[in-house]
Design a protein around this nucleic acid. Structure first.
Lengths: 245, 245
DNA sequence: TATTCGAGTGTATGACATACACATCGCTGA
DNA sequence: TCAGCGATGTGTATGTCATACACTCGAATA
């Protein structure tokens, strides 16, 4: 028995001395997705390669494939991870319009916390649990409206897609930074747009339609989804009242 | 002099016999983009690699770089090529709503003729001439509405993004085919959606909200942008009349 | 006629996803 | 206690991709 102690000790030392050959837990699906999400949050979607995800975890590239069928699957898992329903969606809401507005605010926050989401090359309709959960919540807010289920589904899609588009445009404009890029876009249009060929656009650019309203403070200089959302919800309201709701 | 004839003849034969070493014109930007668009139309965006584009033209991969700065630039050029304004956009229209609806119909046709457009990994706002032309036409339809230029721009963006999203979803669902994929999606939801966890979604699925209306003929089985567009335009109408238009 | 220049080429590099065969280790059942 | 099996992680290799860079060659220019 006594001999085991040195042996055990030696092994302990060896383990301690080794350059931490990996967190000796285990590689799990959740750790893989987590690392991928961290990478994307830090350096964007392009930074997510199988090699880099594995490296960040201290494993080899191929080890990931024990937990994930393909990179595409990993991207899907990343989306699902990040789309966890926030608790405030369970607060009570005051009518369908208020409910949808809260829903949008929550979704918007998620999209801004993870700007890469809108660039995922994911093809196909929503299918992961958390995506469906969001859809479910959107439909729930429309419960009392008297709309048909198909109309509710249409409204949910419409609203979600609007947020997605604006978030994407915002991310593309680099609105993460100080919002200078929007001004740059406006400038660019100002230089490119020929008034003879594009009179209506020229007028819009000249009127500053593609710039921030004068005096917008820097911290509010980001693309805003609320204009479009208001139009959409007005349209939905019209549908609801015309249906006799 | 007589000796030249055989020499010339031999050369002629050689030229004729050679496997058409390339259309002996010249490689041009337009030919490059054209070939890329043909590839994408035939086999999707993934089929567009620099190597394949060049091969289709009978040149080497690197020759393309004489005409195009990078693959990204090529993708942008493809978009611009395909986004040429259709003539029917110059027909007169009957009020802003009719104008926007025609605009959407034209855009929708373009998106269906080239389903890969919605999958272009293009980042940044519209910037090519033809993209701006579309925007200009959309703004033009709103001329008589009394909306501010910023509001017009917001409406144009809203409408365009709706079309884009629906087209993308449709392309993802494979609506090019007979529309079976939508039915498959509905089935999938039917199997995945747990009524305890997602009661509202469950109800919608059970009501057939994610399926085609019963009796939809096969040729009409594609995702439709018109529901969402009608809501948006109703909302825009509300804005216009509230502004005292 | 000599030179320059632009179009097209060939070769090479490094990132990437992923197939496949192998090693290792802990657990199960004898 | 041990045999062996299944699961987990590894190493090597392949094919595709965009693209850098140095070149050839022929036509236009000086």
């Amino acid at each position: 028995m006594k001999e085991e102690l040195p042996a055990g000790l030696a092994e302990l030392w060896a383990r301690l001395g080794a350059p931490e050959p990996a967190p000796r837990n285990r590689l799990t699906l959740s750790r893989v997705t987590g690392a991928a999400v961290e990478l994307a949050d830090a350096d964007g979607l392009d930074a997510v390669s199988m090699a880099r995800v594995a490296e960040r975890l201290g494993y080899t590239t191929m080890s990931l494939y024990r937990h994930v069928k393909s990179k595409n699957e990993l991207l899907l898992l990343m989306l699902d991870r990040v789309a966890a329903l926030p608790p405030e969606l369970d607060e009570p809401f005051d009518g369908w319009r208020d409910g949808l507005e809260r829903w949008c605010r929550a979704q918007w926050e998620m999209l801004h916390a993870h700007p890469w989401v809108v660039h995922l090359p994911i093809t196909g309709p929503p299918i992961t649990p958390n995506q469906l959960a969001w859809t479910d919540r959107a439909l729930r807010t429309l419960r009392g409206t008297g709309l048909s289920e198909a109309d509710k589904a249409g409204v949910a899609l419409l609203v979600a897609s609007h947020l997605h588009t604006v978030a994407r445009l915002g991310a593309d404009l680099g609105s993460a930074a100080s919002g200078e890029s929007i001004a740059a876009y406006s400038d660019l249009l100002g230089r490119l747009v020929d008034g003879a060929r594009f009179p209506a656009l020229r007028a819009a650019v000249d009127a500053g339609a593609y710039d921030y309203p004068a005096g917008t403070p820097a911290e509010e200089r980001r693309l805003d989804y609320r204009f479009g959302l208001a139009r959409i919800l007005d349209g939905v309201a019209a549908l609801i009242s015309s249906a006799g709701g």
